[in-house]
Design a protein around this nucleic acid. Structure first.
Length: 281
DNA sequence: ATGGGGGCCTGCCGGC
DNA sequence: TGCCGGCAGGCCCCCA
């Protein structure tokens, strides 16, 4: 799925269509995504105003006037389509329904938000806003990588003594919440650390913190730029193309000046890791 | 507790 | 053209 930067970009794209508007009607086209959808979901959404649209890790949280919060996870293939509003100088007409349009929110003043998810690894739930952080999907996850509690002493302490590859450690949402395969690969390239390196063996592992923040911040910036180009996005929010240094670049030249190596791909815990065998050790 | 692997789904792409 | 294997950015669950 969309990792943290993509989810943040989706959140910003959804704001004009959702925040402050009333959900006048909700279409729920199937009983489940990854898990069963909440009971009476359509009824519980109908007539409620969206007070705020927040993000925690890769989860979107829409706080409703009913005191409930709609939790949305995009899984691997989840996308949001915004229509019926003017973005920039372009009005977005409602598109024809597509396969895998699982939930459609009809909001006040003609705005519409369509959740489409081919693989259905996504999820939605309704929970009480007051105790949102107690939700099982949120209760056990680690700090926000861009937040104040994710600092160098914290990361160094959490990695100390761990025998797992650093790649796996950074993908562990309990350690830090929001990184996925792409941005872990990019972070380790920038940090010049091989993905196979044992987490506990890394000197000054806290130094990964500013690199993680930098990689994520740049990606959010790139997403914001793509969001402004409404002519191209056509209201569709989800993935955006950013130039990656290693992710997806197997066999292509390393971008480090002076390095003549090519990017390698290995499989760790069933996931592809891309890295430069020369720059990263 | 820690680490590794399977499974959930569908779509796409490359090779034969 | 059709079939088949491999691959995909997440995350829960089970096992050792």
């Amino acid at each position: 799925m969309p990792e943290l930067p993509e989810v943040e970009t989706v959140r910003r794209g959804l704001l004009p269509a959702m925040e402050g508007r009333v959900i006048e009607r909700a279409e729920v086209n199937r009983p489940d995504l990854r898990w069963p959808l909440p009971v009476n979901m359509a009824e519980r959404l109908t007539g409620k105003r969206v007070l705020a649209l927040r993000r925690r890790s890769k989860y979107l949280l829409a706080d409703l006037s009913s005191g409930e919060t709609l939790l949305i996870h995009l899984g691997m293939s989840g996308r949001m389509l915004v229509s019926g509003i003017t973005l920039g100088q372009f009005f977005h007409d409602h598109p024809a329904p597509e396969k895998h349009d699982h939930v459609v929110l009809h909001l006040s003043d003609g705005a519409r938000v369509t959740f489409n998810d081919a693989r259905r690894f996504g999820a939605m739930d309704l929970l009480l806003t007051a105790t949102a952080e107690d939700h099982p999907l949120l209760a056990e996850i680690g700090p926000e990588p861009l937040g104040n509690t994710f600092d160098e002493p914290y990361l160094a302490a959490r990695l100390q003594g761990r025998n797992t590859p650093i790649k796996s450690a950074l993908l562990d949402q309990h350690l830090v919440a929001g990184l996925g395969n792409i941005y872990v690969c990019e972070t380790l390239y920038r940090a010049r650390i091989a993905p196979t390196r044992r987490a506990g063996s890394i000197e000054n592992s806290g130094a990964l913190v500013p690199i993680i923040r930098e990689v994520l911040a740049e990606a959010i910036e790139a997403g914001g730029s793509s969001l402004k180009d409404y002519r191209r996005t056509d209201g569709e929010l989800g993935y955006f193309q950013k130039a990656f240094a290693v992710y997806g670049r197997e066999g292509q030249p390393c971008l480090t000046p002076g390095c003549t190596a090519t990017i390698a791909r290995i499989v760790q815990s069933g996931r592809s890791s891309f890295f430069c065998p020369t720059c990263q050790s």
